[in-house]
Design a protein around this nucleic acid. Structure first.
Length: 348
DNA sequence: TCTGGGGTCCTAGGACCC
DNA sequence: TCTGGGGTCCTAGGACCC
């Protein structure tokens, strides 16, 4: 199995559209104004040399790299290029499972995986002028982790054979599915490396981290993953829209108007897919940064704009009208279509 | 480090039913 | 009439990923 990941995808697309930016530190995020609330989506390798990272506040990025070119996120542009990349991959006569704008798993029968991987890179570069890295694995988990070792523009193979040699001494957060919080909880149990997690008693992990997640983390540490590469088209379960305001909202009439605006956007997204909502959720982030959610099952599935807006506005009753608001979000859950593919997270 | 936006899945408590 | 056990649905929150 192969995992293909475009190098600095978002920044690379921007440079493609503006060749004069080549070689310069480029930071894409928010509306492209480093004085605003927002975070870095992608930094070019040149910007990363200054310590700029994805997820970093734009203000911080500007402090670290004042000479960087700051650009707004241009979703439609990335979607278009992404479509070309995925079509190119499908043209190679392999099973393609799309993972996002810039990533895909490939199920391949090949005698020489490395040369196939190189052929993938050449094909993608030919059609899109974009570079990618390719991970080779004996399952999806290992292929996915392998890619990082190949970056940039490289190929790396990670299998049962070299798993512990490569991974055993790395922190548990190097695994796909273990983030900062879980790594910290594990450290509290005396488990800090992948090797230690692999050897940990599964019953203890189940007791401490849950009957599903505990043993699943241990399987991750062993590189175990039995899920197939699945080309079934992605079917979303929910659609949401949210906005962080550049200055906090304090006027409740304005809050209600914003909830209606967001609900209207969600209804539009829903109607494009032709699927009704069964449940509506409202997200409120009070200043300075305290998030709450409320949700309600609709009496009947609907895509009527007024019903969905009314449900969202109704949920506002559960919130404190006297507090300043930093973010509002509206989301709609859709009835799961009979063909829906179960997601790949701990289910493997 | 003054912390986006779009998603997914898991957990846990309470309601409710038999 | 001081109380079981199992199942399902609803809801809020948390963690993770790109």
């Amino acid at each position: 199995m192969l995992h293909v990941d475009l190098d600095q995808f978002v920044a690379a697309v921007e440079v493609l559209h503006r060749p004069e930016l080549a070689g310069r530190p480029v930071v894409v995020g928010g509306r492209g104004d480093p004085a605003e609330r927002g975070v870095v989506s992608t930094a070019s390798y040149e910007a990363r040399e200054y310590g700029v990272r994805s997820g970093m506040p734009l203000r911080t990025a500007a402090r670290k790299c004042p000479d960087a070119v700051f650009l707004p996120v241009d979703g439609p542009a990335y979607e278009e290029v992404s479509g070309t990349v995925m079509q190119t991959l499908r043209s190679l006569d392999v099973v393609v499972e799309v993972l996002g704008w810039d990533e895909a798993f490939l199920g391949v029968e090949a005698d020489d995986p490395e040369s196939f991987a190189r052929a993938v890179q050449v094909a993608v570069l030919d059609v899109t002028q974009l570079h990618c890295s390719v991970g080779i694995g004996d399952n999806k988990l290992r292929a996915k982790l392998a890619t990082d070792f190949g970056k940039p523009r490289g190929v790396f193979r990670l299998t049962e054979e070299n798993w512990y040699a490569v991974m055993a001494d790395r922190p548990t957060s190097a695994l796909w599915g273990i983030g900062r919080k879980t790594a910290k909880r594990l450290a509290g149990l005396g488990v800090t490396t992948v090797g230690e997690l692999a050897q940990e008693d599964p019953h203890r992990l189940a007791a401490e981290l849950g009957p599903t997640m505990g043993p699943w983390y241990r399987r991750l540490a062993r590189g175990v993953d039995t899920s197939p590469v699945d080309a079934t088209p992605y079917v979303p379960r929910a659609r949401g829209r949210e906005t962080t305001y550049q200055s906090n909202l304090t006027d409740w009439a304005e809050v209600e108007a914003e909830v209606r605006r967001l609900a209207a956007q969600v209804v539009e997204d829903l109607s494009r897919e032709g699927r009704p909502a069964v449940r509506v959720g409202l997200k409120v982030r009070y200043a300075p940064f305290e998030t709450h959610t409320a949700s309600a099952t609709l009496p009947a599935a609907t895509n009527r704009a007024e019903a969905i807006a009314a449900a969202a506005v109704g949920l506002l009753d559960k919130f404190d009208t006297s507090r300043a608001i930093r973010l509002l979000g509206v989301r709609a859950e859709m009835a799961s279509p009979p063909t829906a593919r179960p997601a790949s997270q701990p289910n493997c």
